[in-house]
Design a protein around this nucleic acid. Structure first.
Length: 813
RNA sequence: GCCGAAGUGGUGGAAUGGCAGACGCGACGGACUCAAAAUCCGUUGGUAGCGAUACCGUGUGGGUUCAAGUCCCACCUUCGGCACCA
């Protein structure tokens, strides 16, 4: 078959019939199947896109044949750094390169033959989309979930620009390899930490890979502990957070992060140490990511000269600064228990500080640092308690005396969304000298991204240099004001796009509650696991925030999540241009067509595992389809050679294989186990060939139905090929509008089943045994088997295990 | 360092605690052909044997069980995530 012409023929028909468009009339049967939309950074689809979209489309097509009204849209996540970097390198405007890439990719996606509803397409860099991204930001601002604060950003001193975290590769700028510094800048943040607890709890309600849920759980990083107040000699209170209040009697010193606000006061109180303190603060501020990431980095610190009072013992403990304490976590201060914390131990050893043991190992010698749970010693009234008892008792005691209490901390940080970049949605805020930060009124959206901007790095946001953009009037006081020169992180664009698809063309609203509550959540979401702690977390947060603002009624955006694996280069490494192991789908599409390419992707790999690319498998799929074609061509000409009577043995066998395949495929496709589904199809084709070759007098009606069922079963996997065969069989409709073949359980019941017969757990024989026998009858029958009987002679059967339909195990002695 | 996943023939990969290797690829043998391609049929985990068959076999070592690739313990290797989170 000439696959290329067959494919374009059917693609044209589908486009004309609009049969892949979602039909709102059937909304009560909706199934929202979504693949992560693509990022048009390269000009063409790569194998990864194909592997995500091809098999998932087969899933969607399969569900459609099962009677669901499938909604499967596609769009482009079109803002972002690669287009801008490309522009900086080549001078081509990001808008131009993005539009060209999208045009190419759209065509390639159409050539794939997926049942995307192109009427719902949207592109995040278009005004009619980013207008609503800006609207979303304003709603978050109104709700108090967007705020501005000074924060550290990645700064490339050579490019003179801020870098996103993803642009920092092992501490270096991805473009010029300069060592990235950290710099304080005022940034917009979204308050995702408000939802930390709910984001954690919600994980129990969704059908996601356990691995991904665990990654999110660790990322959110809940830890339960205690806050404890240490009175400082300056009269200030140093609050520390600890998960080990049971070790509080072992505190040897208190450590502040170098950025801690109290540092200035301590310096003033101890001018003799000011110089050393200043030097240390400077030292840690200059530490770059490479040093920071080094696991072997030695602990450093400096004594402030000041002391704090231990809340329970009243003892004076020295206050240190050390950058192994992070200002951004907990309270930015810790109590150091050298005997029971590895870091504190290392620090105390280095600076010759005392080490006080307060926990004893249960049964065994305590080797310091001892960081596990044990029995309390040297802890006054708490001596003898176990770790768990002591943590509770000490927390209760601290609360009673007003020196602290229980506290929960999360590692999750608020989401920084300001990007000092050009190719993104402008942040819809105005800065007025009189009124401060003022939101752009919704009626003035979108805040348009101007085209004529110098986007080459200059040390500030590209938009800041565009006077026409920057200068505006304050919506509150009418005075002169300036726009925010930053753009939104592209993850903001992708945090809500699934809400937009069902109403992609709504010009009055981002989406409506009425439609969203019916169409969402997304039933099955398929994409790479690399988004586990970014996009997938942000989207959950935004959904919950929108729910709290009353815009939707559901809690989670993606009910079920599936990650496809990664297709590696033929050498087993990740595909990369520098390795030269990139496999381009195009030449295979050219040679074999998209159906064969898709089926190979589904058959050659375990979907969630992926693996190295290999050319051999694709030829075998091509041959498989050739065999089917020959079978169907012949069947289309087959005339009845036998009266339409009851099935004979050969027909029963064929019917069995067919129904077995149906049953297996229904289960396996649901589990995204495409390779086994196709294996069952191959078995069915083998059985059809056998029947065709061996049975001279065919039951033509039966055989014809078998062939039609085969085509229906092929349809989700090779959609164009199946349409062509369907037409060959004289059909004038689309096979994709057919119902999936129904399972006939009765066909799977066999009168005799093969049992494996074991004696003392070793297989000795195989035997056909009637289906309806009791365990006793089976044992009796097995014992007469010529291979088995001699083995039982003179011995007694002590036990007989019968596994219905599978095996018999005789234990003899 | 911590957390997680995975290790199965020459190869891609299958196996609700119940016949390991489904279905393919490759290889070997055969049919068709002047020949080749294509197609069709057969064999194909290893070792020993003409053979029936026997023994061994799912990273390594233990264990639980009538029965373990699957469950438990320890270890090795690879991959992924986090990384001074108190």
């Amino acid at each position: 078959m000439d696959m290329k012409s067959v494919e374009s023929k059917w693609q044209a028909k589908w486009e004309k019939s609009k049969q892949n468009y979602f039909n709102k009339k059937n909304i009560d049967k909706k199934l929202y199947v979504l693949e992560m939309f693509s990022y048009p950074s390269g000009a063409k689809l790569h194998v990864g896109h194909w592997y995500n979209y091809g098999p998932t489309d087969s899933y969607a097509r399969f569900k459609k044949m099962q009677g669901y009204e499938v909604f499967q849209p596609m769009g482009f996540d079109a803002f972002g750094l690669p287009a801008e970097n490309y522009a900086i390198k080549t001078g081509v405007h990001p808008k131009k390169s993005t539009e060209e890439n999208i045009a190419t990719m759209e065509q390639q996606l159409k050539n794939m033959g997926a049942m995307f509803d192109w009427s719902a397409e949207m592109i995040t860099c278009n005004e009619d989309y980013y207008k609503w991204t800006q609207w979303l930001f304003l709603q978050l601002y109104k709700k108090g979930l967007a705020y501005r604060k000074e924060a550290l950003v990645n700064w490339c001193p050579s490019c003179e620009t801020v870098l996103a975290n993803e642009q920092v590769i092992q501490g270096e700028c991805e473009r010029c390899n300069s060592v990235v510094l950290r710099k304080n800048m005022t940034q917009w943040f979204l308050k995702i930490t408000d939802y930390a607890e709910e984001l954690l709890d919600g994980l129990d309600t969704i059908d996601w890979p356990e691995k991904t849920k665990l990654m999110q759980k660790n990322w959110i990083g809940k830890s339960t502990g205690c806050e404890i107040y240490f009175e400082c000699e300056t009269g200030d209170t140093i609050t520390v957070f600890t998960t080990r209040p049971d070790t509080v009697f072992g505190v040897n010193y208190v450590v502040l992060a170098p950025e801690h606000p109290l540092v200035e006061k301590l310096k003033a109180a101890h001018p003799e140490n000011a110089e050393a303190i200043d030097a240390y603060v400077r030292y840690s501020a200059e530490a770059n990511d490479i040093d920071r990431l080094s696991t072997a980095r030695e602990k450093t610190g400096v004594f402030t000269g000041a002391y704090a009072t231990h809340p329970l013992t009243g003892k004076q403990v020295p206050i240190y600064l050390a950058d192994y304490v992070l200002y951004s976590y907990g309270t930015g201060a810790v109590m150091a228990v050298a005997a029971h914390d590895e870091r504190d131990f290392a620090f105390a050893t280095k600076y010759n500080l005392p080490i006080t043991q307060v926990i004893q190992k249960r049964g065994g010698e305590t080797v310091l640092p001892f960081c596990e749970d044990g029995i309390l010693v040297n802890s006054g009234e708490f001596d003898g308690l176990s770790g768990e008892e002591a943590r509770d008792a000490i927390a209760v005691h601290l609360t009673k005396i007003g020196k602290g209490g229980k506290k929960i901390n999360y590692r999750l940080r608020d989401w920084s969304v300001s990007r000092q970049r050009y190719w993104g949605a402008p942040i819809p805020m105005i800065h007025c000298e009189k009124c401060g930060a003022v939101p752009v009124p919704e009626k003035d959206l979108p805040v348009r991204l101007p085209d004529d901007v110098e986007f080459r790095p200059s040390g500030r946001s590209p938009l800041a240099g565009h006077e026409g953009f920057m200068n505006c009037t304050c919506p509150t006081c009418g005075g002169k004001a300036q726009r925010d020169p930053d753009t939104l992180d592209t993850f903001v664009c992708s945090s809500w796009y699934y809400l937009r698809y069902p109403e992609a063309n709504n010009s009055k609203a981002a989406f409506t509650k009425e439609v969203a509550d019916k169409m969402l959540p997304v039933d099955v979401y398929v994409g790479g696991s690399e988004h586990a702690c970014m996009h997938l977390l942000y989207a959950r947060f935004i959904t919950k925030a929108l729910r709290d603002m009353g815009y939707v009624s559901f809690d989670e955006p993606f009910k079920r999540l599936v990650h496809q694996g990664i297709i590696l280069g033929p050498d087993g490494n990740r595909m990369s241009k520098s390795r030269g192991n990139v496999v381009s789908p195009d030449k295979y599409i050219e040679e074999y067509g998209s159906d064969i390419f898709r089926m190979y992707l589904m058959f050659g790999f375990s979907y969630t595992e992926g693996g190295p690319w290999n050319d051999d498998g694709i030829k075998s799929i091509s041959k498989f389809l050739d065999r089917i074609e020959r079978l169907v061509v012949k069947a289309a000409e087959t005339k009845a050679t036998k009266a339409d009577t009851a099935m004979n043995a050969a027909e029963k066998e064929l019917d069995y294989v067919k129904n077995f395949a149906i049953k297996s495929i229904v289960r396996d496709v649901e589990a995204f186990s495409f390779n086994t589904s196709i294996a069952r199809l191959m078995e069915y084709v083998n059985a059809l060939q056998k029947y065709d070759a061996e049975v001279a007098e065919k039951n033509a009606t039966f055989y014809n139905d078998c062939i039609l069922d085969l085509i229906k079963m092929l349809a989700p996997f090779v959609p164009h090929f199946a349409e062509e065969l369907w037409e060959m069989m004289g059909k004038r409709t689309s096979v994709h509008e057919e119902e999936y073949p129904a399972l006939n359980e009765a066909a799977l019941v066999k009168s005799e089943v093969e049992y494996a017969v074991q004696v003392n757990s070793k297989i000795k024989a195989k035997m056909m045994i009637a289906e309806n026998l009791t365990a006793e009858e089976i044992q009796a029958q097995v014992s007469t088997h010529p291979e088995i009987a001699p083995l039982l002679e003179g011995k007694s059967v002590k036990k007989c295990i019968v596994v219905k339909g599978r095996l018999v195990n005789l234990i003899v002695g």
